[in-house]
Design a protein around this nucleic acid. Structure first.
Length: 489
RNA sequence: GGCGCAUUCGUCUAGCGGCCUAGGACACUGCCCUCUCAAGGCAGAGAUCACGGGUUCGAAUCCCGUAUGCGCUACCA
């Protein structure tokens, strides 16, 4: 694949950007960048009813977040604009009229009600549903009569009744359809807007798209597009259908499976580099072992030939693992910088904001290798920011200890810690390790009790570092408080 | 129902006729490291390559059926 590809991502602004669509965008982008071609962004806003306010912005937002920059399209323009289909209606109308004039399309006056009862009847009789071509051969008089009734017609394509339509998909290979199984689909709706089929063909051709890369669910409509290209005397592009992303039940990934928008993953604390890498690996692979790849490596190595043919389940656990890998690979400063907004949002309300950047900078290294998402960071570190610890008193009594020995241990620790001037890792270790021996306790027992006293939990970053960051005053106060709790038991 | 596509460990995948007694990753189990948790290291379990027929000296790999799954079947994309 060395010739520059002109590809496009053509989303419909009907909601937040779905990870499946974003992956389609990625494959397109990857091919464009790999071949030194162009990535075009075209907005398919031809369904007035389904249009959602703010959807366009969120789609652009999602693309930008992943670094999927476009060479032509909204905000950047280009030589083949406009890039909003709602601004290209004239083109579609002209194409539709041309097809009617040629005898390849016709006006259809059937009411939605008639179509509905027709379909219901077909289903009832277990016949394949599809338009019954009622208006295909209307006479001039019949048409005039309906026009006089004030009916605004749609334009339907006159699909050949016989023969086959085939195409060679770059991933799925040769696919053949009997024309007799394709019904006369709508080209132009009664509101003057084109359907996907018409707009797509007209624009892909006008925009000189070389490869149409889209999800497998479009295979069934591809013969219609081929037929249209042919009727319009246009050269069809190469078709590349890729397998879909599935939910755990192997059905097309949808809202009922949980998070489906790329923006939700951003909100949940996944890194864009993780999402980019992870999504690229759903249905595509480099070889038998390479999984962690930078954007550049992906661009350099991407190829259509290595896209598979089977749908793939979106594996959250693996995503979490991969995000951990990327989180750990960040520099300390970068990790802190990226975690900050999640911290500000996720910490308990009593925590005073803005946060002390210096203090946060000392805490973050303690959780960087423990977090799987940035959102987790707040939960992992909240005890550094609030003194309102709430924990089961029983947790202070570590395995094989009782209330008395726990009290003894914490009292002894308090005595040893009070004179420690510098609360750094080494000083704390120098004092506490011998203390365990002195008390006849395992380090795990002493440190465990201290951990609960100081952090309010049994699982936390290493004790000495934690205490060092918390500082002497806070630590002693917390141990004292724990003693109080123990004595009251 | 019709049409189309797919089918290798639980999951993502490598494999494009002999290198496969099927390799890697996530998850899982055990051990090591260790103040807990992570991370890391080592080891392990896990796939009769959906099933049945061919073709071939030889098939996960090629062909044909069957089954199952998924997609499409709108004046939605």
């Amino acid at each position: 694949m060395t010739t520059p590809a002109r590809v496009r991502f053509a989303p419909s602004p009907t909601g937040r950007p779905h990870v499946g669509n974003i992956r389609t965008a990625m494959f397109n982008w990857l091919l464009a960048r790999h071949t030194g071609g162009s990535f075009v962004l075209r907005i398919e806003d031809t369904d007035v009813a389904r249009k959602v306010e703010g959807a366009l912005e969120s789609i652009l937002d999602g693309l930008k977040w992943l670094g999927l920059d476009w060479d032509e399209g909204p905000e950047v323009g280009g030589d083949y604009g406009p890039y909003f289909q709602s601004q290209r209606l004239k083109l579609y109308r002209e194409a539709a009229e041309r097809l009617v004039a040629q005898g390849d399309a016709y006006y259809c006056y059937c009411s939605p009600e008639r179509l509905e009862t027709m379909r219901a009847e077909q289903v009832r009789r277990k016949e394949p549903p599809g338009y019954d071509r009622h208006c295909r051969d209307l006479s001039r008089e019949e048409r005039a009569q309906r026009e006089a009734e004030g009916i605004t017609p749609v334009v339907r394509f006159k699909v050949p009744l016989t023969g086959q339509t085939r195409f060679n998909d770059l991933i799925f290979g040769e696919v053949v359809f009997e024309n007799s199984t394709i019904d006369d689909f709508v080209l132009l709706k009664s509101d003057g807007y084109p359907t996907y089929h018409l707009a797509n063909v007209v624009d892909d051709s006008a925009m000189k798209i070389s490869h149409v890369i889209r999800a497998e669910e479009w295979i069934s409509s591809t013969p219609r597009h081929i037929l249209l290209y042919r009727a319009l005397g246009l050269e069809p592009p190469s078709f590349v259908h890729h397998p879909m992303i599935l939910g755990p039940d192997r059905a097309k990934l949808s809202k009922r499976h949980g998070a489906v928008s790329i923006l939700e993953y951003r909100e949940q604390g996944y890194l864009p580099e993780t999402m980019f890498n992870f999504l690229s690996l759903i249905g595509w692979s480099l070889d038998d072992k390479t999984e962690i790849m930078t954007r550049k490596e992906l661009v350099d190595n991407f190829s259509l030939e290595r896209i598979g043919r089977t749908g793939a389940i979106f594996n959250r656990e693996k995503l979490d693992w991969m995000n951990g890998v990327y989180l750990r690979s960040l520099s300390g400063d970068d990790f802190t910088r990226r975690a900050m907004p999640f911290l500000e949002r996720g910490l308990p309300p009593e925590v005073k904001q803005p946060l002390d950047g210096d203090y946060v900078g000392r805490i973050m290294p303690l959780v960087q290798e423990r977090a799987r998402t940035l959102a987790e960071v707040a939960e992992l570190t909240d005890f550094f920011f609030t003194d309102q610890l709430s924990y089961e008193p029983g947790l202070l009594i570590v395995k094989k200890m009782d209330r008395e020995s726990a009290v003894r241990a914490l009292e002894a620790a308090l005595r040893k810690l009070e004179p420690v001037a510098s609360f750094d890792h080494d000083s704390l270790e120098a004092v506490l390790r011998p203390l365990a021996v002195e008390l006849g306790l395992k380090t795990g027992q002493l440190f465990g009790a201290l951990r609960v006293a100081v952090t309010g939990r049994t699982v936390a970053p290493p004790l000495f570092e934690t205490m060092s960051v918390l500082g002497k005053e806070r630590c002693l106060a917390r141990v004292n408080k724990a003693l109080g709790i123990l004595r009251r038991m």
